[in-house]
Design a protein around this nucleic acid. Structure first.
Lengths: 228, 228
DNA sequence: GTCTATAACCGGATAGAC
DNA sequence: GTCTATCCGGTTATAGAC
């Protein structure tokens, strides 16, 4: 059980860490400095956070919350699929921009299969689901027909695609991230085209192959719950 | 300039590190232990390797060499595209299997945009090119027609695809990595089908969109050399 | 110049008293 | 829940040997 005071202390530590990360970057921020700014002892900081990387995680969650909020504005107003998708992507890029400097570290951590930040493992199922849901919303609000067989897979695919864009952004040092924005726009086009194309009955065999692939990935991504 | 004795010392350090990594894993291996097993002082190890992660890099390079060798046997014998591609993928999976336990760390490091292991940045251009060349070979030796416009992009795409398979493998804890092998086979199928499909003149507009995307990525992947 | 060793530093993490 | 004291291991400074 955690007390009121505990919550406050924890919040102070997060704030201190986030401030320092933004000021100097992650590596240059010591746990000693975080503790000092939060007004607690170093040891106490470890009472609330198992390690330094867990503070990074706090950062990550905040970004996701901010994105959900920013994307909602787009989803509430746009009705065209292309506009909705691009709007959601752009709001993502906007939200993460301040952290470009060290989000490489986030990715780095996220790449470790054992990391709680890794989008592919079970621990982060909730966060992943939130992300996927967002793209389900993107599709729902759009006036477009989607073949029933691929429909359930599409949000997950789009979410994966959005991670690809973020990966590109990570390496993008162009002025104002123009390259990433250009890529988002072009690929958005492509995605919409492919979705429309997939309805074509001539492509049914290809769609079936693709579906089989998706299903075998799915098993690993969302293991079927073992019944009692 | 480095002397003969220097080379030998360096090799001893790599061997010591690689042995220890395999025995206990990366995190559990201390630089002190590596130095001791190599019969050098801890400080001396740092004369040869800027840091612990550079020893990991040695591991990585060895894996790549092994893969090139293993793949060659496939490329020399098979002529069918599907068989060639699947053969190369399987040889990759075979080579990396002993390191499954900690290759997550490799990926983790590779995900950092500044890391020399990151396949997308300039420092690793050479290693990337080697990988891409392998898939160029896969295509060359196969009896198949490829539309001229996408031909130059295909090896790079296939290399990227192979990294996707490795990423999946990383998270695969199934018996004998059956899931990854199943995925490789299925996606291999799919890739071959898509390549054939892309030749269809009806898909020209889609291909054009895709090409534009590929070109904007390319700029970042291989920046055009500035002329003098 | 190339190589090697010793000693120290620094910061993340932990133990244990209060 | 909070602190102090300590550990541990990656890294660096530096001095000297070949």
């Amino acid at each position: 059980m955690t007390t009121r005071k505990g919550e406050e202390t924890k919040a102070r530590i997060v704030e201190a860490a986030l401030d320092l990360f933004r000021e100097r970057g992650y590596e240059e921020t010591t746990m000693r400095a975080v503790a000092e700014r939060a007004g607690v002892s170093q040891g106490n900081a470890y009472y609330y956070f198992k390690g330094k990387e867990y503070l990074l995680q706090a950062y990550y969650h905040r970004m996701q919350e901010d994105h959900i909020e920013a994307a909602q504005r787009v989803l509430d107003t746009e009705t065209d699929l292309h506009a909705r998708l691009l709007g959601v992507l752009n709001s993502k890029l906007e939200v993460i921009e301040p952290y470009h400097r060290f989000s490489g570290l986030l990715f780095r951590q996220a790449a470790d299969p054992k990391s709680p930040l890794n989008p592919f493992n079970d621990q982060s199922a909730e966060a992943r689901q939130e992300g996927i849901n967002m793209y389900a919303q993107v599709l729902e609000g759009a006036k477009i027909k989607i073949p029933a067989d691929i429909a359930p897979h599409l949000p997950g695919l789009m979410w994966t695609y959005s991670m690809g864009i973020v990966l590109f952004w990570l390496h993008d040092d162009s002025e104002g991230r123009q390259r990433t924005h250009a890529l988002a726009e072009q690929t958005c086009d492509l995605v919409v085209k492919v979705i429309k194309l997939l309805s074509n009955p001539l492509l049914r065999p290809l769609r079936k192959s693709a579906l089989r692939v998706l299903e075998s990935i799915q098993v690993q991504l969302k293991p079927t719950p073992t019944d009692p």
